[in-house]
Design a protein around this nucleic acid. Structure first.
Lengths: 193, 193
DNA sequence: GACGATTGCGCAATTG
DNA sequence: TCAATTGCGCAATCGT
């Protein structure tokens, strides 16, 4: 909450959910449930952290995160697309070897993708996703506009500073001249007396 | 090419592909090949144009684009996920009734999703997508940082303007005083003489 | 036409 | 439990 906020839309932009942690989720196509290490929020990182499987960290840090994933991580499920797999079997049930927080919950294992409940949940999530993305798009647009306004304002301010500086120089010059004259007058007066 | 560019990172941000036209694509899950009308680039719109199916335009313009799609537009394919359908049959071949630019090209109709060519194209596109999104993320971060820097610089400039203004007032005051004294001296001299 | 770049979208995982 | 966020793959489209 108190992250030395700048009281600006821009800061609000950078931290949408007040430090929400993406927790990469490890690109779950039909591959793994790898332990998640990379916990740096995207908005705080240098913009290169995306995936999360630890064997891709090096590439990500080097700015090459868009290179092809190792084939072992790519969803190459036999026909049907990566989303047609029934509840992420990942080829076998190794849940018992994983921490409770990482293994597939028992109540999630028997999801019928044709069930009305599933479709209802999916549809609700789809709506939420669209809403969230619209929000993000608006945030981006606002930030752009803000930046542009600031840039224009900056230009005007610089111009104003130039004007003021020049005016100051002029006045200073005038004053120094008067100082000179005043000094001369004083000198002559003294010599006269 | 020559869109009256502002020669700024910000403008570069707003027009990534020099006026690239998203051409909404009409949310092709397994539903329609609706005529595309909405040709406003996202970056030029008010941030609400997303879909493109004309029967959703009203909602989008009202800022309610995240509301549920009409069920007729929602991918409710029977099991297998929306991407597992074989090359968008859409339940029937009405291509001959559509304009050439809207109908599914003949050479696209016999895509074998298991073929190495398809997988190769998909993998290439996935890489391109990751790359593009990384780029977008970096752009966003840059715009944020830019806006923040501009805001800070703005503050400093305003401060400087305040200083200069005050200095100017001081000098002006001094000058007016000297003018006064000079006038007084002149007056006394005249009276004396 | 081929190919990379963008974009909208749905899915799944995760967060709050 | 549920909405919000996020990464990802897919398909359509654009531009070269």
């Amino acid at each position: 909450m108190s992250e030395s906020r700048v009281s600006s839309v821009i800061q609000e932009w950078a931290y949408p959910g007040q430090g929400h942690n993406p927790a990469p989720s490890g690109h779950v196509g039909s591959s793994s449930q790898l332990p998640q290490i990379n916990m740096i929020p995207y908005s705080q990182s240098q913009g290169l952290v995306r995936g999360g499987a630890d064997d891709r960290m090096a590439e990500q840090m080097m700015g090459l995160s868009y290179l092809p994933y190792p084939s072992s991580c790519i969803s190459t499920s036999p026909s049907g697309g990566n989303h047609s797999n029934q509840q992420q079997n990942h080829g076998g049930d190794f849940s018992s070897f994983l921490l409770p927080s990482l293994r597939v919950p028992a109540n999630k294992r028997s999801i019928n993708k044709d069930s009305p409940e599933y479709r209802l949940r999916r549809e609700r999530n789809n709506i939420a996703v669209r809403k969230s993305r619209d929000k993000a798009r608006r945030r981006i647009m606002l930030t752009q506009q803000k930046a542009q306004q600031l840039q224009e304002e900056n230009k005007k301010l610089q111009l104003r500073i130039g004007q003021l500086t020049q005016e100051l120089d002029t006045l200073r010059h005038i004053l120094s001249q008067r100082h000179l004259h005043a000094a001369e007058d004083g000198a002559t007066e003294e010599t006269v007396i």
